[in-house]
Amino acid sequence: MKTIGWVLMIAATAFLILASSPLQAQPDKIVLDQGRKTRPVVIFPHYHHIEAGVSCKDCHHVYENGKNVLEDDKLEEGNQGLRCSACHGSKSRRNLVQAFHNQCIGCHTTYLKKNEKTGSRYCGGCHVRK
């Protein structure tokens, strides 16, 4: 049963990616590529996450004293300062790989623990080999 669930979810994801029209303000999928070719790059279904009801500032953040102080008007397409790599580089406390992993795995794990519908629990669920 679980397998069918996964297949359905992946199909739904694919459907959403294909069905999302260019009129959408947000990019439907983002390639997360940090240049070090170890695992296949992650194709992040951004629009799918908006559809699932994840708020923008659940992920996008500028932390100051433990508070997310990111302003709403900065949340627009093409804002280079919004990119993860704008802050998370090789010199920051969390480098880009760690930032991606913490953000994705952290959130998916909480969903898993609450037994709610979420993506794969293993590495290859996001790093899909073609």
Binding site: K2, T3, W6, S120, R121, Y122, C123, G124, G125, V128, R129
Partner: peptide
Amino acid sequence: FAYHQWFNYDTVM
């Protein structure tokens, strides 16, 4: 198998 993502990935993992 998991690295090459053969068969059902989640089951293999």
